[in-house]
């Protein structure tokens, strides 16, 4: 941690950065911290399991505009950055990507493309609790699952915090903002809430890094991130594509293999 702070102070003092995006202590835990001077670096805190995923700010022009930015990344944020680079959303050496590894090693990535070899070694895994809930749901009948999710989705207030928290939900016009046709009713009802979640998860299929920021952001506590996690599992099982690694040969749904599984097609 001291190494991290020292590095940030050095970068501020040398004028290499004007903004460091990291975490500081908030009322209910860590919160995003937009640090703009060397003297404020002291407030910075860090752990690899912090939420939210700070990579979400890198595609927000109002945040990064004209600033020289360093971003303090969790492993999940690193994964997101690797994906964002693949999808042309961030430039080659636009940001200083700083990371403190679980064994407290300070790492600075010159380019998003350098991230891959590092994260390849670290699988994206769900928490024990998440795994338990998924197993519980898998054990249910289809009707019980439907009832469980319907109850969850009836809590949804359509605030789109799940979308706002996701680094990969960077579209300027989301499908829910599209009214020709009106694919998804704009108000909160269990069906339109579920349709929204199906769209969100399908749009993230093969792009989601499994950080869980969406679920963490939900003010109603709906575990929407479990849907993403289930898809990550499916993709790994069916297409052999490991969760959280930006596949070099394209995303999951824009590529194919002629011998992909098709046991469900009769």
């Amino acid at each position: 941690m001291d190494k991290l702070k020292a590095k940030l102070i050095e970068l501020f003092q040398s004028g290499e950065i004007t903004l460091a995006i990291g975490y500081k202590q908030g009322t209910r835990g860590p919160r995003p911290f937009f640090c703009r001077s060397a003297s404020d670096v002291e407030q910075m805190i860090f752990s690899n399991d912090y939420q939210p995923n700070l990579a979400v700010y890198l595609t927000k022009k109002e945040v990064v505009k004209d600033e020289k930015v360093a971003i303090v990344c969790t492993i999940s944020a690193l994964r997101s950055i690797a994906y964002l680079a693949r999808e042309n959303q961030i430039g080659q050496s636009q940001y200083k990507i700083i990371h403190l590894s679980p064994n407290d090693e300070l790492m600075i990535f010159r380019s998003p493309w350098d991230i891959d070899p590092y994260i390849e070694e670290i699988p994206s895994t769900p928490s024990e609790d998440d795994r338990r809930v998924i197993e519980m749901l898998d054990a249910m009948t289809s009707e019980e699952r439907w009832a469980w999710w319907a109850a969850q989705f009836s809590k949804c207030i359509k605030c789109y915090a799940c979308r706002a928290a996701c680094p990969m939900c960077y579209c300027t016009r989301c499908i829910v903002d599209n009214n020709r046709p009106q694919w998804i009713d704009p108000w909160a009802s269990p069906l339109s809430n579920m349709e929204w979640q199906i769209n969100r998860v399908m749009h993230l299929a093969g792009r989601c890094v499994g950080c869980g920021a969406c679920g963490a952001a939900c003010p109603e506590g709906i575990p929407v991130h479990l849907l993403n996690r289930k898809i990550l599992d499916n993709i790994e099982e069916n297409f052999g594509i490991t969760a959280g690694l930006a596949p070099r040969e394209g995303a999951v749904l824009n590529t194919f293999k002629p011998d992909d599984k098709e046991n469900f097609i009769k």
């Binding site: 999808e87 042309n88 959303q89 960077y170 579209c171 300027t172 016009r173 394209g250 995303a251 749904l253 824009n254 590529t255």
Partner: peptide
């Protein structure tokens, strides 16, 4: 409204 993710290029 295209955000330029370029994933359609491969599809």
């Amino acid at each position: 409204t295209c955000v330029g993710c370029s994933l359609c290029v491969d599809i």
